[in-house]
């Protein structure tokens, strides 16, 4: 399988009055062709900034650094704004969280669908229109041709998100970044949109980074999972490994928060992780999860923890040995 996206030691720093906010701290991951990587974490852990950093759409005052940032072998780090714009929407596209506000109210769907293609490909408006209709049908919109003349306010949230997906596919990108694409939608619509995304990804053999805080989504569509906490990846592995054998105490905590039908007793307490996320402003030392971790010991506060390899390509950021971590996972599962 060929690597599409490779990220090594990506950092995003935001200078603030009270110090530098280290929003994304040295994260590394890769996505293969036809593969779905889910980035999981609670709000504020840096997952959205990660995707914006990849797209080169960070707020102007945010500073991005990376050892390696490549898309299909092409180095994105060295590209200037114009070259980056050539890639955006063409080789790599993004789907945003808010379908209600992500479309320009002043232009028709057709206009907004066509414009990326007219910008990146040598096509005439008719060809762009054909492609738009084809993709609208692909994303399950009926009467596609007549939808082209409609304005965003005439469509429901679910339809708008389908339009956003079609818009991302217009130029046939290698890579799709979807930032919580279903969060703002009704639960019934969420499932449809996810299926759609997964199917399209398979059909067009794209790489997909799906950012979410919903482990249910992860279980359904992910091939691999990266768990983010406080700007770092704390655990990474295949979806089977992560769900069956979570090594990091944070991942274990997250999984405990999901009720399992038939297994979690009615009326039983759902898990929760006590404490709060540390401030990411200023220099950080030790494990960021130490203050909430049930297994923390004194070294956790003083030693910087590196990602370590577990069996099967799984990696986790914890001082505990693989055996101890597995033991904790087993206890957590039976608790």
């Amino acid at each position: 399988m060929s690597r599409i996206l490779e990220v090594e030691n990506l950092r995003v720093d935001i200078p603030l009055e009270s110090g530098t906010l280290h929003a994304v701290r040295d994260i590394s991951f890769h996505v293969d062709k036809g593969e779905t990587l889910c980035i999981v974490g609670e709000s504020g852990c840096g997952k959205s900034l990660t995707s914006l950093a990849l797209m080169g759409l960070l707020p102007t005052k945010a500073i991005r650094t990376a050892n390696r940032l490549s898309l299909g072998g092409r180095d994105l780090k060295t590209l200037n704004e114009t070259q980056m714009a050539d890639i955006r929407g063409s080789r790599m596209a993004m789907i945003f969280q808010e379908p209600m506000t992500s479309l320009n109210p002043a232009y028709t769907i057709g206009n907004q669908l066509a414009e990326a293609m007219l910008r990146h490909r040598k096509v005439n408006p008719n060809e762009a229109r054909e492609r738009a209709i084809y993709l609208l049908e692909k994303v399950g919109i009926t009467a596609a041709a007549s939808r082209l003349g409609q304005y965003p306010h005439q469509l429901s949230g679910g339809l708008r998100q389908r339009v956003m997906i079609a818009m991302a596919l217009m130029c046939g990108p290698d890579m799709i970044l979807a930032d919580e694409p279903t969060t703002a939608l009704d639960v019934t619509i969420q499932a449809q949109i996810l299926h759609l995304l997964a199917n399209l990804q398979k059909e067009f053999e794209m790489g997909l980074v799906l950012i979410t805080h919903d482990l249910g989504i992860v279980a359904r569509v992910a091939h691999r999972v990266a768990v983010m906490y406080a700007g770092q990846i704390v655990e990474e592995g295949t979806v089977e490994d992560i769900f069956r054998r979570p090594m990091h105490p944070y991942t274990q905590g997250l999984l405990r928060c999901i009720p399992i039908p038939g297994k979690t007793a009615r009326g039983a307490h759902l898990g929760s992780i006590p404490g709060m996320v540390p401030s990411l402003i200023g220099d950080l030392k030790g494990c960021a999860f130490a203050n909430r971790c049930p297994h923390a010991f004194s070294d956790c506060n003083t030693t910087d923890v590196a990602l370590r390899d577990a069996s099967g390509g799984q990696r986790y950021r914890c001082l505990l040995s693989q055996e101890a971590a597995t033991q904790n996972a087993r206890e957590a599962a039976t608790a």
């Binding site: 704004e81 050539d86 990326a116 910008r119």
Partner: peptide
């Protein structure tokens, strides 16, 4: 700072298109 401007930029549109077509119009 609207979301649809971010969308327009994510499509890789030229800055002048983002500015005049998407922003100024609204």
């Amino acid at each position: 700072s609207a979301d649809y401007i971010r969308t327009a930029r994510a499509k890789g549109l030229f800055p002048r298109t983002v500015l005049f077509k998407h922003a100024l119009r609204n």
